[in-house]
Design a protein around this nucleic acid. Structure first.
Lengths: 136, 136
DNA sequence: CTGCACGCTCAAGTCGACTTGAGCGCAAGC
DNA sequence: GCTTGCGCTCAAGTCGACTTGAGCGTGCAG
């Protein structure tokens, strides 16, 4: 079965203009055209699902997404880099989550100023920063 | 102890121009000025550490970061939203990580086209998308 | 046969978060 | 006394990822 650009857009929650843009930059070409009209098939929907998965939330740039989904075996190291970057981000997001949880559970009115626990942690971060760039 | 703008920038791996920008948008004001020259103290470094933690990788916009770090008790729900968004992102990043791991371990030359396991998963995602937007 | 929905192209505009450039001041060292 | 380094302001430029607008074509319901 074939889908029009607006159907694809609707089903994936993506703007029509974004799909035209993906075509323009050769990230996702339609299966074909009826006259001048783009038509998309299953294969393209698969690819779009992958693109969406890797690209949403600014997880990866479109260029990186394209590189990651390119043909093998050119791309092993590219994919490894992507995965490592994703892992680093998960770590950082967990740190952020811990901080936010603390802000929500801390009994102080303004934890950023008043909480001794948070203060100790920030002192550590700041000291590390101050020490870490000593040689530069 | 007081730090100059270039010291702060160096220690945190942030550009001087970014710090001036943070001042301009009232996200991080210097502790004071010697003449026209910005000086930063411990308190500002603490705040910068927090900003950095929440904002890097496009985790949160500067506006959201500012809102999250604002005085209480205005901000409880803002912080909750931030935390929920962070959690959702962690989930999505994990999905992306799983995909990338699969691409790295799958024995097929071009898993996106050839791997039956991946194909099954993508079919599911696509079917969900096609079904999920039925009422719209 | 006249709207209206939907599609198309191409060029220009937008947004956040900075960066860059022009033009200036001030202190230290050769 | 002049260059070098660091700092300042203010306006304009940049980048990615789209979005918007102008202007056009096509098919079909009323």
């Amino acid at each position: 079965m074939q889908y029009s650009i607006s159907e694809v857009a609707r089903h994936f929650g993506i703007a029509v203009s974004a799909l035209r843009y993906y075509d323009q930059v050769n990230l996702l070409r339609p299966a074909g055209r009826r006259g001048s009209v783009r038509t998309y098939g299953r294969e393209e929907l698969h690819r779009l699902a992958l693109i969406h998965l890797l690209h949403r939330d600014g997880m990866m740039s479109l260029d990186a997404t394209a590189a990651t989904l390119a043909e093998r075996p050119t791309t092993r190291d590219v994919i490894e880099n992507s995965r490592d970057e994703v892992r680093r981000r998960i770590q950082r997001l967990r740190e952020a989550e811990r901080l936010l949880d603390h802000l929500l559970t801390c009994p102080r009115d303004n934890p950023v100023r008043d909480c001794p626990h948070l203060r100790t942690q920030l002192d550590h971060v700041v000291d590390t920063a101050l020490a870490g760039s000593a040689g530069r």
